[in-house]
Lab assay of single mutants.
Amino acid sequence: MATGGRRGAAAAPLLVAVAALLLGAAGHLYPGEVCPGMDIRNNLTRLHELENCSVIEGHLQILLMFKTRPEDFRDLSFPKLIMITDYLLLFRVYGLESLKDLFPNLTVIRGSRLFFNYALVIFEMVHLKELGLYNLMNITRGSVRIEKNNELCYLATIDWSRILDSVEDNYIVLNKDDNEECGDICPGTAKGKTNCPATVINGQFVERCWTHSHCQKVCPTICKSHGCTAEGLCCHSECLGNCSQPDDPTKCVACRNFYLDGRCVETCPPPYYHFQDWRCVNFSFCQDLHHKCKNSRRQGCHQYVIHNNKCIPECPSGYTMNSSNLLCTPCLGPCPKVCHLLEGEKTIDSVTSAQELRGCTVINGSLIINIRGGNNLAAELEANLGLIEEISGYLKIRRSYALVSLSFFRKLRLIRGETLEIGNYSFYALDNQNLRQLWDWSKHNLTITQGKLFFHYNPKLCLSEIHKMEEVSGTKGRQERNDIALKTNGDQASCENELLKFSYIRTSFDKI
C-alpha cells in the first residue's frame, strides 16, 4: 500500500482533458527560462521544448504516446526543470519506465491550478516501474492521483506527508504495488545497510526511497516546507523545498512566496507586481503582455491589467481597466465587458449561442446573426445582446428569417469595421425574408467608422429604411451602385405612401 494514499474509496472516473512563447529569463536562482504550460502528445517531438525550461508557468501534460519505446527515452533528460506552477499529468506514455532521468531536479509542483483537485496525476502508464522524482520536495496545493499503472512499484516507500501538507485526498490505487509483488529495495538494503531515512506512518517504520538508488530526502521537522541542505541544516524561511546553503534567500532552489532578481522575498516591493503567484514583474512586463494579447485571437491570451499590486489576466467583477495605466478602477454604474472572439468572429444561430455573449459591452471581433427560429426570440436576444455598444469588426445579418427588427441591439452605437466582410463591408444584410426595420432612427444613433453597407434580398425592408441608415451611420456616399439592390429590397412591402385627393359631386333626387 502506498504510504499516505487512500484505498478502496469510491472515486469519480478520471477524465483526461485534452506555445513556446518565453516569458522571460528567471535569473540567477533558476538555471534556465520560464516556459508556458505545455500539452505534449502523440510523439516526442515537442518534448524537446523543455530543454531550457527551469519553470513551467502553467501545467505540463505528457500523454497518448503509443509508439514510443524505452530506448526512445534513454537520452532524454531535462535537468534544468525545477518547478511547475500548476500540475504534472502523465497518461498512456508507452515505453517510459521512470522519471528519474527525465526530470531529475523537479523540486516543486505548486498546484496553482489543479487537474480535478490533483497536482500530480500518473494514470495508465503501462510501462512505468517507478516514479523516480527523487528531488520532489513540495506539492504546495492539491493532491496526488496514481492509478492503474500495472508495473509501478516504489510507492509504499514514499512518505507523501513530507511532500504535501495533507495526504487525506491522495488516491493511489490499482498499481502493481497493490499486489505486494514489488519487493522494493532501498539503497544499501541488499548489503544489509540502512542508507535512507525511515519514518513512521500508520504504525509502520519504513525506509523512504524513490528507487533502488535514490533515497527520499527527509528534512528535520523544524525546517517545515522550506527544505534543508545535504547536511540537514534548514533553508531560509522564504525558500521552498530545498537550498544549497542554509538561511540564505539567494540560495533557495525555489521560493515559498515570490522570486525577485535572484532572491526569494515575502512580497513584491514597489515598483514590482505579483505575477502568477510566484514571481515579481515590473510595469513594462505587464504592459507588454497586455499589448501582445490586445489584437491576438490565441486562446488563453489575456490583456493583463494591474489590481491590488498584482498583474492579473482581467479586472475583477465591479472594476474596469483604465487604459492609460492598466489599473483596475471601480465602475460607475454597470461595468464594461470586452469579449474577445477566439477566431475573430462568432455566429449567433440560437439563443444558446447568444447567451455566451451575455453582459458583453464591447465585441472584439465580428458578429454573424443567422437565426431561423426560436421561442420568445426578441426578448431572449435583447437579454443577451442588448448591452453590446461596440463591435470592432463587422455585423452580418444573414438568412435570419425569424427577425423582424434589429432593435434587440438596443445599445449598439459603434461598428468600427477594423475587419470587413469580403474585404469591403462593415454591415452586411443578406436574404432576411421578414426583416422590416433596422432601428427606430428617431431614437437610435449608430456610427460606422469604416467599410460599406450591403443589402440584398431583404424583400420587406424598404429602401427608405436603408437610406436612413446611410445618413445616420455616416456611410452615405461610400456605397457603390450594386451594394444596395434596388429590386430585391422592399419588393414585397408597401414602401411608397402617396396622399390621394378626392373630389365629389353631391346629387339628390331633384338636383344634379
Rank of each mutant, 00 (worst) to 15 (best):
L29Q: 02
C35M: 00
C35L: 01
G37S: 08
G37R: 03
I40P: 01
R41G: 08
T45E: 15
H48F: 08
E49D: 10
E49M: 08
E49H: 08
L50A: 06
N52L: 06
C53R: 00
I56A: 00
I56C: 03
E57A: 07
G58C: 01
H59R: 09
H59Y: 07
F66T: 04
K67G: 03
R69A: 14
F73S: 06
S77I: 08
L81V: 05
M83I: 13
T85H: 04
D86N: 12
D86F: 00
L88S: 01
L89R: 02
L90N: 00
R92E: 00
R92F: 07
Y94N: 07
G95N: 07
E97F: 14
E97W: 08
K100E: 15
K100Y: 07
L102I: 09
P104T: 01
P104L: 01
P104F: 01
N105P: 00
I109E: 00
R110V: 04
R113C: 12
L114M: 05
F115V: 13
F115Y: 13
F116V: 03
N117R: 06
A119C: 03
V121K: 00
K129A: 10
I139A: 02
R141A: 02
R141L: 08
R141T: 02
R141H: 09
S143P: 10
R145H: 07
I146M: 09
N150W: 09
E151K: 14
C153V: 01
Y154P: 14
L155G: 13
T157S: 09
D159N: 13
D159W: 15
D165K: 15
V167R: 08
E168I: 09
N170L: 09
L174S: 11
N175F: 13
I185M: 08
P187E: 13
G188F: 06
A190F: 10
K191T: 14
K193Q: 15
T194P: 12
P197S: 12
V200W: 05
G203C: 06
R208Q: 15
C209T: 04
T211Y: 06
H212V: 05
H212K: 15
K217H: 10
K217N: 15
K217V: 12
V218Q: 12
V218S: 12
C219V: 04
C219N: 08
T221A: 11
I222Q: 10
C223Q: 05
C223T: 02
S225Y: 13
S225T: 09
H226R: 14
G227E: 02
C228K: 03
A230T: 06
L233F: 07
C235F: 00
C235N: 01
E238H: 11
C239K: 01
C239G: 01
L240T: 15
G241T: 11
N242S: 09
C243W: 00
Q245F: 04
T250D: 04
K251L: 08
C252P: 00
C255Y: 01
R256Q: 13
D261S: 10
C264H: 00
P269H: 13
P269W: 11
H274A: 11
Q276E: 11
D277P: 02
W278P: 01
N282W: 02
F285A: 10
F285P: 01
D288G: 10
H291Y: 15
N295H: 14
R298N: 07
R298C: 15
G300V: 08
H302P: 05
H302E: 08
Q303K: 02
V305H: 05
I312Q: 04
E314F: 01
E314S: 05
G318V: 03
Y319S: 06
Y319R: 09
S323K: 05
S324A: 15
N325Q: 10
N325P: 05
C328T: 03
G333Q: 11
P334Q: 08
